[in-house]
Simulated assay, not measured.
Amino acid sequence: MATESYTVTGMTCAHCVNSVSTEIRRIPGVTDVQVDLSSGSVTVTSDQPVDGNAIAGAVDEAGYELAR
């Protein structure tokens, strides 16, 4: 198991959280996504490490941006 944390900017509501979570869950190997709306923190748990570019792409697809 691998766990990584990221910060996503632009999320303001529960719909935002759902959109980001849904897109990240589509990445192969991801087993869990936890989003803290107030801090923008996203914790991704997966079977093996996930490429940060895949996370950034999923967040972008949801309409938000991964803080770098």
Rank of each mutant, 00 (worst) to 15 (best):
S38I: 09
S19A: 15
Y64W: 03
A54Q: 13
S21K: 14
G52H: 10
R68K: 12
S39P: 10
S46P: 05
E61I: 05
V8Y: 02
D32I: 03
I24F: 04
T22H: 11
N18V: 12
L66K: 13
D47F: 10
T12Q: 11
A58R: 04
T12W: 03
P49G: 10
S19W: 00
G57M: 01
V17I: 09
D32C: 04
G10L: 08
C16Y: 07
S5N: 11
V50T: 03
D47H: 12
V8F: 03
D36L: 10
G57Y: 02
L66G: 08
P28N: 13
V20M: 06
T45F: 07
H15E: 10
D47N: 14
D60Y: 06
V50E: 07
P49H: 01
T45I: 09
V42Q: 01
G10R: 01
V8C: 05
I27H: 03
G63V: 10
T3D: 10
G40H: 05
I24T: 02
G52L: 02
G40L: 02
C16A: 09
I24R: 02
D51M: 00
A58H: 01
Y64N: 06
T3P: 00
G40M: 05
E23V: 02
A67E: 13
E4L: 08
T22A: 12
V59N: 08
M1V: 11
C16M: 09
T3F: 11
E65M: 06
S46Y: 05
E4H: 11
D51H: 01
M1E: 11
G63I: 08
S39I: 09
A67Y: 09
T22P: 01
A14L: 06
S19M: 06
V17E: 07
D32V: 01
T12V: 11
Q34Y: 07
A67L: 08
V44L: 06
S21T: 15
A2C: 08
D51C: 00
T43P: 01
R68S: 14
A58N: 03
S46K: 06
G29R: 15
V59C: 07
S19F: 00
C13M: 06
A67M: 11
Y64A: 01
Q34S: 15
G57Q: 09
L66S: 09
A54K: 12
I55H: 03
V30A: 08
G10I: 01
E61D: 14
R26N: 12
D60K: 15
A62I: 02
D60V: 09
N18L: 10
E4F: 07
A62C: 04
